[in-house]
Amino acid sequence: MLSSLIPPAFFLLALAHFMALLSPGPDFFLITGYAIRYRLAGSALICFGIASGNAVYIALVIGGWQIMKDNHALFLIIQWAGAAYLLYIGYHLLRSRQRDLNWHTVSEDRVSKGKQFFLGLASALLNPKNSLFYMSLMTVILGRDVSAAQQIFCGVWMVGVVLIWDLAVASFLGHSRVQHLLSRKIHRIEQIAGGVLCLMAVFLLVGV
């Protein structure tokens, strides 16, 4: 039963999604700013808010799937655009250079749980790259023959991975040794992630 929910391209989808998570974006720096001062207790609900925002975009992609699936020309255009977008992300990650991370500061007052969640939700929803990224993953990698159940399974997986990753980041970034390590090695992580995404995009473009 479980095997029927896992599409053939699930591994590629999971790998591309995780590679993207390794690159710090707006969500990463939001979590960092609060985790450094308040640790996990003051940033956990930010992580839940970010995961919820990602879930909204994934649901929108799944909801419009049938329209794209039944229109071959539209689906082909989206496939090429999605692969090009993955290549664009990978290219910029490959150009990453060593730099000091801009650790944000926050108010001395403890942030309420409601505000934490709203900050995370807004961060995810107000980043238009999220919608393009999930559209790229769901259309380019999964292909036209994936079922609705398989899409939902992949969507739940990605939301879960986002939440677990963000909680892990919040848990560890309060330690000074971790902060120092990231400031020296983050560009290497970005370069590796960029290389993987570029290779995947080229492979998908050739196979379209």
Rank of each mutant, 00 (worst) to 15 (best):
I6C: 06
I6M: 02
P8G: 08
A9F: 03
F10E: 01
F11A: 15
F11W: 11
L12S: 12
L13N: 10
L13I: 06
H17S: 09
F18W: 07
F18V: 10
F18R: 00
L21G: 02
G25H: 06
D27A: 14
F28S: 04
A35C: 02
R37N: 03
L40I: 13
G42H: 02
A44H: 11
A44S: 13
A44T: 03
A44E: 06
C47D: 10
C47W: 04
F48V: 11
F48H: 02
G49D: 09
I50A: 05
S52T: 14
G53P: 03
I58V: 13
A59S: 11
G63T: 00
G64N: 11
I67Y: 14
A73S: 14
Q79C: 11
W80P: 00
A81E: 02
G82F: 04
A84L: 15
A84F: 12
H92C: 09
H92V: 05
L94Y: 05
R99T: 08
R99Y: 04
L101G: 07
N102Y: 02
T105S: 15
S112R: 02
K115R: 14
Q116H: 00
F117L: 15
F118W: 11
F118A: 09
L119T: 04
L119S: 11
A124F: 06
L126N: 10
P128D: 08
S131E: 07
F133D: 05
R144H: 11
D145S: 14
D145M: 05
S147G: 01
A148M: 15
Q151N: 13
C154F: 04
G160D: 04
V162R: 06
A168M: 15
V169T: 06
V169N: 06
V169A: 06
S171W: 14
S171Y: 13
V178Q: 00
V178K: 01
Q179F: 01
R184G: 00
I189A: 15
I189R: 10
E190W: 10
E190T: 07
Q191C: 06
A193S: 12
G194R: 04
G195N: 11
V196F: 06
M200H: 06
M200V: 12
F203Q: 15
L204P: 02
